[in-house]
């Protein structure tokens, strides 16, 4: 078990910290090579990326346990038995050619891509063009202006297990800097019922130290100069349905 997982005890979220990993010597290949291998073959012909910068921001209680049978239950009539199985596993999601876009988040930048043939601009990026007539033309990276507008939105009052405590929130599909696509993210900095179609928005990044090179590094906020419109019957209804969510979240256990 990794040390990080063992140490964690309290319910608090550990601060993001950069753990520089010492460059280890290349694993000696000789030992694993069959005796008959020639010297030329023993040298790795392909240079593989090495990952020295590792950021572990694992919340408390997240441990990789693999498969564990944790118990069973028997129905009161003694006829049925159910097994309890727990499974937790760390995944490495490799981003390959999309990396520039996620690396950009670390620097507080929004990188999309653009097709040099037809000019279509994408965020989230596509590494090649989506227009079949462009025949998978390689796109080029472009830094986008961190502003746009709301294409559509909703107020979430329920979510997946990992997001329950963030409720209620506005999830907006925003179009950034004239892209041909809209991207979903939180719209914060307003009362949820004040969200509007077409309202100007800007991309706001978390403080640098808290960024993870992922979509959660930023969210939308109303664009500069925007002010909420007057209350309407629909907004009143949204408000009426949203307020209990705040109360419900307060009652939620850790």
């Amino acid at each position: 078990m990794p040390a990080a997982a063992k140490k964690v005890k309290s319910g608090s979220v550990k601060k993001t910290k950069v753990v520089p990993v010492k460059k280890t010597k290349a694993v000696p290949q000789k030992k694993t090579q069959p005796a008959s291998t020639t010297k030329a073959e023993a040298k790795m012909p392909i240079k593989k990326p090495n990952f020295s910068k590792v950021v572990d921001c694992r919340p408390a209680g997240v441990a990789e346990t693999g498969l564990v049978f944790t118990g069973y239950e028997v129905s009161d009539d003694g006829i049925l038995i159910n097994h309890k199985l727990h499974y937790d596993q760390l995944y490495t999601l490799r981003n390959g050619s999309n990396s520039k876009h996620f690396l950009g988040f670390l620097d507080g930048k929004i990188f999309g891509t653009r097709c040099p043939k037809c000019g279509d601009k994408f965020f989230p990026p596509r590494i090649t063009c989506w227009d079949l007539t462009c025949k998978m033309e390689q796109t080029e990276w472009v830094e986008l202006k961190p502003v746009g507008y709301v294409h559509t939105f909703t107020i979430a009052g329920w979510s997946g297990r990992s997001s329950l405590k963030r409720l209620p929130f506005v999830l907006a599909y925003g179009i950034i800097d004239g892209c041909k696509t809209a991207v979903a993210n939180f719209l914060l900095g307003l009362d949820p019922w004040d969200a509007e179609f077409g309202m100007p928005i800007k991309v706001v990044f978390k403080p640098k130290a808290e960024r993870l090179g992922a979509m959660v590094d930023w969210h939308f906020e109303p664009g500069d100069g925007w002010t909420p419109g007057p209350m309407t019957p629909e907004k009143e209804r949204m408000k009426k349905m949203t307020l209990p969510v705040y109360e419900w979240v307060k009652t939620m256990k850790e």
């Binding site: 989230p124 559509t152 979430a156 329920w158 979510s159 997001s163 999830l171 979903a184 992922a214």
Partner: peptide, 30 residues
């Protein structure tokens, strides 16, 4: 809620699931 999240693994997890999205939320916005 875990079930909702499992199903939401069919959305693009790099983008939509990561920002708290599950299907009822996407469908509501649509």
């Amino acid at each position: 809620s875990q079930g909702s999240e499992f199903i939401a693994l069919a959305s693009d997890i790099r983008y939509e699931l990561m920002v708290g999205g599950i299907y009822p939320i996407f469908y509501a916005a649509l």
